[in-house]
Design a protein around this nucleic acid. Structure first.
Lengths: 339, 339
DNA sequence: CCTTTCTGATTCAACGTTGAATAGATCGGG
DNA sequence: CCCGATCTATTCAACGTTGAATCAGAAAGG
């Protein structure tokens, strides 16, 4: 019942351990005859390499840590899923850590505390300061994601993601291009970790400005958190105040779902009377019964780039500290109006 | 820039490596004076133990693998989150693998292929057969979860979870106890991996039988998958057929959200005209604008029990192969925030 | 036929840690 | 004052693997 080792296979096959190692790793030169024999013995004994020993010897673990506030948040689940997919394709294993936006947990994670040997750390911080990054002791490659992480990036510890301001501008522009003139937002925030809200609000304002439209404060829906109930409540308030809007930009899809629900209850047709755009393009939107568009933060491409950065041999600093990737816009509105 | 090792700390502090090891691990007997000195040096040099070396020596990695079909599915995200929480509290690290319900991927995961050294494997299978479990070569502790996994369990590779049939019975009973007599279901399935649907349907039938109510086929909502759109469509069909129901049991919360949306659009008051019960008690339900109850599959307790089984020194087989935990029912029927 | 080159295989040491065995110092009791 | 017990610290080997160095034998070249 004891673990089968390289040497056990070697003895059984009548060769040296190193030769078996060569077969397992495809290294060195091994005659076809021996190779086949050894493979047979490996299968017979059910040999499986001990990754700890291998890692101790070679120094690479094939492990990457992913730290996120809370996997229950659909966007984080979505990103994590995309990241797993990229990693699995490369034979990289991902260990996950939830920080719940706790500063001490975030700091410990930054150092890889309590973790197995890693190739790199990917994290979506909520509380860290630039100072925490600067004081970091661990030399492990670190990649930041998310809007809060955006502000902490350095060339050595870069941020990867789409341009949030530009994406929000494009989302708003999409509504304008469909002829909507009075566009409301849901997702304005005060206090707390508001990097996301600030950037998306900025993009929204830019789009209006570019179109020569003055922002109307009565069309701004404030929220405390980005969840369904708040999206619903904010929409409720807009309707109650008799705000006159034909377009609605929600700062994430969860808010959008809440708003769509409220609009449906009040008999406001979507996209007939109000066209809606969300942000994150979460899978659930594909099954939404209401028709709306959403900004696709390109999690698949972001994941790939992160792994390129971490596993890349060069480990070159990223100029400016920001690797900006193109976002997309998915339109769940089936019949597209060609322009 | 080279990694700081035990021996580096030892030299600096003028002691042996083993003494430093003792300080780090709290083993052996070390004088308070030396202990303090060594801790200072550890901090000064930023020493961090090499987990691979430690694991190679001790044989335990503190790593558990969690395999799930797709983290984007809210229930899986929810469970994973609970599992991370339990694991982190115990200093256990979790590596995640997505199987997408692919048989080959599930089989490979079962063997721990491509994984670092693990303490155990937790998996929610969709395609595995009992045969795959029986033919397994890896001796790693394996715990199964989910309804499909339920059917594969053995005393050595147990299943952990709540009693699905009983939980579905209780959910239905809750509606009956509120005076509802005509109770519809959404979530009946044909073909595919239907373990979940079958068990919940059985519980539903039992509750009706116990109450002396004959099941009415016209109150059964069939679906292909458990998602929002299907829940909505099924509710739509029930309404279109003028099905007369005052209670609705949805086989999961995602179906319930879709149904609630449709009921809202059609002006059917919830829980006034129709009381709704879901299954999974996902976080999102707490933010739902509609009032409904849901079966809580007790993911926190399930996670704890799984880790007990895997990390427990005894590794005793579970009689019958099933560790059944009590479920809960959360009632989101709260006083709504007045507007 | 002898030297050189090439190929396939082996030997050896080391990765960083910790369990087991051991050594030295201190202490208490007879 | 000596002996055993107690406490602190050390030495040594081993966990399973693979890079580097090496070697034996065959093939190639002069």
């Amino acid at each position: 019942m004891a673990r089968v080792r390289l040497i056990d296979v070697a003895r059984r096959a009548g060769v040296s351990a190193k030769t078996v190692s060569n077969v397992v790793n495809g290294t060195g030169a091994v005659s076809e005859k021996k190779r086949v024999e050894i493979l047979a013995v490996i299968d017979e004994l059910g040999y499986r390499p001990n990754r700890s020993a291998r890692q101790l010897r070679t120094g690479s673990s094939g492990l990457v840590a992913l730290g996120m506030p809370d996997l229950r948040e659909p966007y984080f689940a979505e990103f994590a899923s995309a990241f797993f997919t990229s990693a699995q394709r490369r034979g990289v294993t991902v260990v996950v850590w939830q920080t719940h936006g706790d500063l001490e947990t975030e700091r410990a994670f930054l150092e890889g505390e309590g973790m197995p040997e890693l190739e790199g750390i990917v994290m979506s911080p909520l509380r860290l300061s630039s100072d925490d990054i600067a004081k970091r002791r661990s030399a492990l490659p670190l990649v930041l994601i998310g809007e809060h992480g955006h502000g902490l990036a350095t060339p050595e510890n870069p941020h990867v993601g789409v341009d949030n301001i530009e994406a929000a501008r494009a989302a708003t522009h999409l509504l304008l291009s469909k002829g909507r003139q009075r566009i409301a937002v849901i997702g304005a925030q005060e206090g707390g970790s508001t990097a996301t809200s600030k950037m998306r609000m900025e993009g929204y304002r830019r789009a209006l400005r570019d179109a020569g439209i003055a922002p109307d404060p009565s069309l701004t829906g404030w929220v405390i958190e980005f969840n369904r109930a708040e999206g619903s409540a904010a929409a409720e308030r807009l309707l109650a105040a008799r705000a006159d809007f034909d377009g609605l930009f929600c700062f994430n899809d969860t808010l959008a779902f809440g708003a769509l629900y409220t609009l449906a209850i009040h008999g406001v047709s979507v996209p007939g009377r109000v066209a809606v755009v969300g942000f994150d393009a979460i899978e659930e939107g594909r099954f939404s019964t209401a028709q709306f568009a959403s900004v696709d933060p390109n999690s698949a491409k972001v994941s790939e780039s992160i792994l390129d950065l971490i596993l890349g041999a060069e480990r070159a600093p990223v100029p400016g500290g920001h690797l900006v990737l193109p976002f997309g816009i998915v339109d769940h509105e089936l019949p597209r109006i060609p322009d």
